[in-house]
Nucleic acid binder design. Sequence first.
DNA 1: GTCATTTGACCTTA
DNA 2: TAAGGTCAAATGAC
Length: 338
Amino acid sequence: MMARSMESVDGNGASGGLVVTELSHIKELVRQLELHLGGSHDLCKHLTTQIFSLTERSISIITSSSGLDGARKRAAADTGLASPLSAATPTSDVTDGPFKNTKKRKVMEKRKHQVRVSSAGGGAGENPVDDGHSWRKYGQKEILGAKNPRGYYRCTHRHSQGCQATKQVQRTDEDPTLFDVIYHGEHTCVQRPMGAATAAAGQPEHNPDANSLLQSLTAGLTVKTEGLPALAADPQGGWSATAPFYFSSSTPMSGCLATTERSPFSAPSTSENWGVSPATSDSNHVASYLPFEDAEWRGQNELQEVVSALVAASAAPAPAVDNLDELLDMDDIASFFA
DNA sequence: GTCATTTGACCTTA
DNA sequence: TAAGGTCAAATGAC
């Protein structure tokens, strides 16, 4: 599915042009959004700035003649993000892709999904943002070469429902407001989603016009960060996709209703919002997995990464899709926004 | 009393 | 053997 869509980006100049057109449109929308926002909403202004920046980078990546790897390096350089995983963290075990290196521990061969999330609110607490699942911490470990310890979490429903999902959360060395989150396994539990109202209640006020623009902006975009092991593997750029709010898409987390029903924008604006309750503690992240068996995926994922950050930054649900359906898998989008 | 977190010990893997 | 990952007893919060 994504294979199809990504082919259209990587190997088809016409589609690439289409994406550029779409991204240019997004840029224009962001401009309008910024105008509507005025100067009263710092958070929104920050988001629009981020969206704008990411969009420009996306265009740059697509139009770059030097290929995606080069673009990744530039993007990483632009954001000032050193690669957190390249040297300091043991997650470099994903360097060769999730299923390739047979020297990895067996446990490492489990499906894993790696994201970077930003605390966006000051960095207090170990749970950067809410991902809609309940996690229980079962360990913490000092990691060689890393300044900050890594926290180990498992699904609260591990015993009651046999859910095998786990995650590791580690504050990045270079930016204490950023967290590297590695998800292992899939949720097989069934959780009641956090009420959308609850999520919305925690948000800053939003200008209706701004919301409209954001909806327009995000129409047709979805977040798929699968295959992040390949991303993390990049010794140069590390993760270029950072966003104050990382919300998840859907997917193989079958049975876990939380991620599909809750507001994707329940991200905290203040640190108090993290870890307030098990159901609200953690990242709004969306995990999905793809069989990244080809190095091409790495380049393709570059665009995904940027799009993910874009969507995460705008963080508005999009009930409808747009022309980008050639680029993105509409089935997944539909299921996510269902 | 229940549940989550902390933390040292132990296990597994490269 | 070193390091990452997990277990489980101790502890604390509610």
